[in-house]
């Protein structure tokens, strides 16, 4: 259920960044979704597609969700390996002395925007 709240945060981050850069349109937003977060991707996608309509600059934005597998670092053998979610053992030596280094976060990793400086004659079409 918190996917809608997260979607609202993500749209807000995209809008703020667009405003900060004087862009009038956000073309794509890439969001990295760590597997440990238990986020229902369809719900998140749905939330994004509904909420993006609230802002002129994100109306047509394509939100791309990228699945991020779980990566752990082993303090025993120093290896960094990709593991199945919820199996916290080193993929190299099998030790349980691992710390999660990736796959535990939700990150707005990249955006593509169209700014006023790129297209002539659009000045004044600011994004709110």
């Amino acid at each position: 259920m918190h996917e809608v709240g997260l979607a609202s945060q993500i749209v807000g981050m995209a809008v703020r960044e667009a405003e900060r850069r004087n862009a009038f349109e956000v073309v794509t937003v890439t969001v990295t979704v760590g597997r440990l977060l238990q986020i229902e991707r369809d719900s998140l996608q749905f939330g994004l597609d509904v909420l993006k309509g609230e802002h002129p600059c994100t109306e047509k934005t394509r939100f791309v969700l990228v699945d991020e597998p779980v990566q752990v670092h082993c303090s025993w053998c120093e290896a960094t390996t990709i593991v199945d979610a919820w199996r916290f053992v080193c993929g190299a030596c099998g030790s349980g002395a691992v710390a999660v280094t990736r796959g535990d976060d939700l990150i707005v990793s990249e955006m593509e925007v169209r700014g006023n400086e790129n297209i002539a004659g659009t000045a004044g079409h600011g994004s709110e």
Partner: peptide
Amino acid sequence: MKISLEQRVMAAN
């Protein structure tokens, strides 16, 4: 224009 952001969504909380 592509922008690299790497912003955590949970950062505000």
